[in-house]
């Protein structure tokens, strides 16, 4: 399969704490890959290293943009540059722009695909207006797809919790990514919302052709969605494989059960 993301030997130290240790992972085109592991395993840290929020201590993050045969090494890039390259993410603890409207939240995602500068904003020339109008319409189209169009002019902070999670996905999609990184998208959702999310994620993959890497604790969702699963524990990768293989992997069962008996 054609890869879109390849992570090799990724390591991250926080002072003396080894949060990630030689983690390998790859995501193929049109694939849904899950990253699972007990609390504190280093999953969010993995996302932060890929998206440039932390520079990884060692290892390589390679992306394979469409139309280019040579991979591009992106570790050390600023988060906004990583997003420009086509990786977009959501956050485990929702990080919307609470005092902006839903539409404006999505329009922020369009920012890196727009050009207008200060002068353009003041003069409002024809190309600026066209770009602005396109941004509004594109953002609205994304909201329609995600099913948030009734809330367009609502402040993001006034949305119900499940809708806020979906708005994060809409905002990330507005940056035109080829890979979407979702950090616990179902956290705090009720079973109905989770079922909708399951459908939504599959639709994003099928209709938009966006590959997906997600962190999730809801095993039912993970098993239903993923083509492949990677398991980390204490910063190390302990298993990888299809949902079937992971379900029966003794190391994984031990990691999860071990955690439960600790708690």
């Amino acid at each position: 399969m054609e890869p879109v993301l390849k992570v090799q030997d990724l390591g991250m130290n926080f002072g003396g704490l080894r949060a990630l240790d030689a983690v390998d992972l790859d995501v193929g085109k049109n694939e849904i890959v899950a990253l699972i592991g007990p609390n504190g395993a280093g999953k969010t840290t993995f996302f932060n290293c890929i998206t440039g929020i932390y520079p990884p201590t060692e290892g390589d993050v390679l992306i394979f943009p469409q139309g280019k045969d040579r991979p591009k090494r992106i570790n050390g890039l600023k988060p906004n540059k990583v997003t420009e390259k086509g990786l977009a993410r959501t956050f485990q603890n929702i990080r919307l722009f609470p005092n902006m409207t839903v539409l404006e939240n999505v329009m922020i995602g369009r920012h890196c695909r727009m050009r207008a500068g200060v002068l353009g904003a003041v003069l409002r020339g024809r190309s600026t207006m066209r770009e602005e109008k396109a941004a509004v319409m594109d953002s609205y189209a994304i909201l329609e797809k995600i099913g948030l169009d009734p809330f367009v002019n609502e402040f993001a902070k006034n949305l119900p919790y499940g809708a806020q999670r979906r708005l994060e996905i809409a905002r990330a999609m507005a940056t035109e990514p080829f890979l979407l990184l979702l950090d616990e998208p179902a956290a705090g959702m009720n079973p109905n919302e989770t079922r909708d999310l399951d459908k939504l994620i599959k639709r994003i993959r099928d209709e938009e052709g966006i590959s997906i890497l997600l962190i999730e604790h809801d095993m039912k969702l993970v098993m239903s969605l993923s083509d492949r699963i990677f398991v980390v524990d204490y910063g190390k990768k302990i298993a990888q494989g299809t949902p079937e293989e992971i379900r029966n992997n003794p190391a994984v069962i031990k990691a999860y059960l071990g955690e439960e008996t600790d708690a």
Partner: peptide, 19 residues
């Protein structure tokens, strides 16, 4: 809009591609 996003959440703002 980028200014306001910066005010609201710096990390998210950067992750959305704003310099």
């Amino acid at each position: 809009r980028a200014w306001i996003a910066l005010r609201e959440d710096e990390t998210a703002c950067q992750a959305m591609g704003i310099d």
